[in-house]
């Protein structure tokens, strides 16, 4: 929970895993892991900023338990494309464990094809997060954020911000309507609003 004079929407408080993933009432991490174990391949699918990385982070302890501790996680980002050789090494290192790739769509199409071929020759299980589904990867979860959840999580971030709370919730509703379902992007915009508000309210920052 944010505290002190920190911006409640700074990376520390909103990065994946800082807020645990909230499962719907009738589902939990075990259900998802069981589906993955049944097929040994799975994809968590959802648009930008809907909690895919947060879900992976929340799942990691359950995944480690289910796969005997042999779980390797790789982050793919648009800034630094991962080399295929590195993925091959990870498949080898995972052995009969689980390889988790966050941001699978960042791999190029040829990379994904070659990776799939390499994976077929191994005993390694695979879980990826991706924006769009792939025919060869069963969808084990689709991330979506309902308005009520988005509002609730934002209210939690604003606990202890009595002066800003009312304005913050009002601004959030406006920004969320423009950016739905990307909660991360909405919170980045909230970061800017909080900065503007605190500068006007509490004076010029230290420079």
């Amino acid at each position: 929970m944010p505290h002190g004079d920190s911006n409640p929407f700074c990376t520390r408080f909103i990065r994946p895993g800082a807020i645990p993933f909230r499962f719907p009432q009738d589902q939990n991490a075990d259900d998802l892991v069981q589906r993955l174990r049944a097929g040994l391949r799975g994809a968590i699918v959802g648009p930008h900023g809907t909690g895919k990385s947060t879900l992976i982070t929340t799942l990691m302890p359950t995944l480690r338990h289910a796969f005997g501790g042999r779980v390797l996680r790789q982050q793919c980002s648009s800034q630094g494309r991962i080399r295929l050789a590195e993925l091959h090494r990870m498949i080898a290192r995972a052995g009969d464990g689980l390889l988790v790739i966050d941001g699978f769509e960042q791999l190029s199409r040829p990379q994904r094809i070659l990776f799939r071929l390499a994976l077929a020759r191994s005993n390694c299980a695979l879980l990826v997060t991706t924006h769009q589904p792939y025919a060869w990867l069963p969808v084990v979860w689709r991330t979506e954020i309902e308005d009520r959840l988005a509002l609730g999580l934002t209210a939690e971030l604003l606990v202890g911000q009595a002066e800003y709370y009312q304005r913050g919730m009002k601004v959030f509703q406006r920004l969320w309507a423009q950016r739905r379902p990307n909660l991360r992007e909405t919170w980045f915009a909230m970061y800017d609003d909080y900065f503007t508000w605190s500068t006007v309210t509490h004076g010029q920052p230290i420079r």
Partner: peptide, 8 residues
């Protein structure tokens, strides 16, 4: 420590 919109 640093805090903001990017890496920490």
């Amino acid at each position: 420590f640093t805090e903001g919109k990017g890496d920490e």
